[in-house]
């Protein structure tokens, strides 16, 4: 099973997770820019975080054989914080960088006027550089939030096939598919959406434009939920090709619209080798090691 996890916050995860992800078949992922769990208090904090998504985290992933990509944006929650607003002026520069595959996560948290403004502005940035958009739907008042999201997307002129609306459930999936956008589902232990419910949604709506992710982060989450969803699909009678479509070809097609996916195997990586190259290699100074 080859897997592309299109939404996973690896800055919150340990190297045990990277090893488990690779063993499970994950060869590439997308880490969206989001908030840290407590507020950032200045623009510099954001810039250091963006730099770490493109730098340290991409490097760390490569040490475990995984191609790491990122999305960049001012997230919905921090759109409300005046101390962070000026980061919007810095974002266009990041949208040119290697490995940046979308503007995101954008959208609504509590549906405030500030969130409206920041969402609309970043949709225009995405249009300017022709990048797709990753939209976070709110966890509270989700259906209304999804409707408003789709209205704002339509007004922006961003083509709907460039938009992935994430964290969906049974109540809002049809809305998103009918709008021509991609439908994202975050599979968590217990809350929000699980793999069996996901299988039921796939049985009802088919596999076109369906995206599955683990959204693993600092909270109670499981980076192997993509694999578990694949297994649940097989158990329910879906084919290997269906699983490959949902877990690999769909996210690759969506994020491939950026032109910035890198999917060739990480050069020099050998599964199971310790990530410190050369030193343990029987004393030989012949170069080993992986490059991000």
């Amino acid at each position: 099973m080859r897997i592309f996890d299109p939404h996973i916050h690896m800055t919150s995860r340990t190297t045990d997770d990277y090893e488990a992800l690779y063993a499970a078949g994950v060869r590439a992922l997308v880490e969206p820019a989001f908030w840290l769990g407590q507020p950032r208090t200045n623009v510099g904090s954001f810039l250091d975080y963006f730099d770490s998504l493109l730098g340290w985290e991409r490097f760390r992933a490569a040490q475990f054989g995984i191609r790491h990509h990122a999305t960049i944006a001012l997230n919905p929650k921090e759109a409300n914080d005046a101390r962070c607003r000026e980061v919007l002026d810095e974002i266009p520069r990041y949208l040119l960088k290697d490995g940046v595959v979308a503007v995101g996560e954008v959208g609504y948290d509590s549906m405030t006027p500030e969130e409206d403004e920041v969402f609309a502005r970043q949709l225009q940035m995405a249009r300017d550089v022709d990048l797709p958009v990753l939209v976070h739907t709110p966890h509270r008042d989700k259906l209304a939030g999804t409707r408003r999201t789709l209205d704002v997307v339509r007004e922006s002129g961003v083509p709907s096939e460039h938009v992935l609306v994430d964290h969906l459930n049974e109540t809002n999936v049809t809305l998103v598919l009918d709008a021509g956008a991609w439908a994202g589902f975050s599979i968590y232990p217990d809350t929000k959406m699980d793999e069996d419910r996901m299988v039921a949604i796939l049985q009802e709506h088919g596999t076109d434009r369906m995206i599955v992710n683990s959204a693993a982060d600092w909270g109670r989450s499981d980076p192997l939920k993509t694999l578990k969803t694949g297994r649940a699909m097989l158990a329910a009678g879906f084919t290997d090709d269906d699983v490959d479509k949902v877990l690999w070809r769909n996210p690759v097609e969506f994020y491939g619209q950026s032109g910035n996916l890198v999917l060739d195997p990480v050069p020099g990586f050998v599964e199971g080798d310790l990530p410190t190259p050369g030193v343990e290699f029987e004393g030989s100074s012949v170069l080993r090691g992986v490059r991000a």
Binding site: T276, P277, G278, V279, F281, S285, V286, L287, R288, G289
Partner: peptide
């Protein structure tokens, strides 16, 4: 040397 990168 620590990082295992050749001194070349």
């Amino acid at each position: 040397v620590f990082m295992g990168v050749s001194l070349d």
